[in-house]
């Protein structure tokens, strides 16, 4: 990890000192364990702060939106797929972007780590090749990284960037053995009456902070539907109907665009698993239209496309 981080810093310093880009958007080490954060390096000196670890969970494609100038972005598979999405949706030009590609080792879910130490405070996490050394007040334990991966990283199929101007480190395996279709859309297995209950159970702790929406690189509408006041599409209360309206519509707006990057779940302060909703759509889009978002520049987004033989057995 540290070797990769060093190479990212070198690339960033070079790009900035040669004036190829105005900013390098990467990750820096957080002030609390397991929380790296999006960092903007404008000078070669600032590039020294860039890092690479198991906790680079924010999707940096978000920060390219409405950003003027030439930018370089540190991108693993999912981030690169969202960059492709944004290019395809005409949010910026490929020429204004320099992709510092890096294979994702699979990112770690800090909640899964914390859950192994209930009630205890973790003070430091040290990266080892296949393990994490977790230290806290009065304890120290070595964990297998794989066991604490974010769920979306377990079933990822694109760990290497789909576009890159420069690859840092080796191209690695694309997947990690998990099969998305075994875990996607978990409520499909339930009888209809149970589905609503399960969704309520999933969303019950939602505090409507919209961190999921705000962390998502798909959400760049000038005015989000939940912020519309005239008419107001979605009530602002904690009533389950209002909460569900927000989550269902948010998921629907991601149709054909969601790359399953997991930024929403990582951002949520309450640990809500909203991928139970978005994974259903991701699965349907693949099944109905054979499409995976963000894999190819120039690909037509499936929701703004049609084919004469599209499935229509639901139409009466």
């Amino acid at each position: 990890m540290e070797a990769i981080a060093q190479k990212i810093r070198e690339a960033a310093k070079r790009l900035l000192s040669e004036g190829k880009v105005d900013v390098v958007i990467g990750y820096a080490k957080g002030t609390v364990p397991m929380r790296e954060y999006p960092y903007f390096a404008y000078t070669p000196e600032e590039a020294e702060n860039l890092t690479w670890s198991s906790f680079c969970c924010n999707n940096l494609a978000l920060y390219t939106i409405r950003r003027p100038g030439r930018m370089a972005v540190v991108a693993q598979g999912c981030v690169s797929r969202n960059l492709v999405n944004l290019i395809n949706e005409n949010q910026f030009k490929r020429d204004d972007l320099y992709v510092i590609g890096v294979n994702s080792p699979g990112m770690v879910d800090r909640r899964k780590v914390q859950a192994l130490f209930p009630g205890k405070t973790i003070t430091e996490v040290i990266e080892e090749p296949e393990h994490l050394l977790v230290k806290g007040q009065g304890f120290e334990e070595r964990l297998e990284r794989k066991k604490v991966f974010r769920s979306n990283c377990l079933t990822c199929v694109q760990r290497n960037p789909v576009i890159s101007d420069e690859m840092i480190g080796e191209v690695g395996p694309e997947g990690h053995g998990g099969n998305i279709d075994k875990v996607a859309a978990p409520w499909e297995k339930l009888v209809p009456a149970e589905r609503w209950t399960e969704m309520q159970e999933t969303l019950k702790d939602c505090i409507r902070c919209y961190a999921c929406r705000d962390a998502c690189p798909l959400c760049y509408c000038h005015v989000c539907f939940v912020d519309e006041a005239q008419p107001q599409w979605c009530g602002k209360t904690q009533d389950e109907a209002d909460v569900a309206t927000f989550h269902i519509l948010r998921a629907f707006h991601c149709a054909g665009r969601c790359t399953d990057c997991g930024a929403c779940e990582s951002a949520c302060p309450q640990g809500i698993k909203m991928r139970r909703l978005t994974s259903k759509i991701e699965k349907d889009i693949r099944a109905l239209y054979g499409y995976r978002p963000g894999m190819e520049i120039g690909a037509q987004p499936p929701m703004s496309l049609f084919k004469p033989n599209d499935p229509q057995d639901f139409i009466k």
């Binding site: 954060y37 999006p38 960092y39 903007f40 924010n58 978000l62 920060y63 505090i207 409507r208 902070c209 919209y210 961190a211 929406r213 705000d214 962390a215 951002a267 302060p269």
Partner: peptide
């Protein structure tokens, strides 16, 4: 100018 860069403008900090 630096503080705001990465901010998502979400409600997490205020709600907690």
């Amino acid at each position: 100018d630096r503080v705001m860069e990465s901010c998502l403008n979400c409600g997490t900090c205020t709600f907690c």
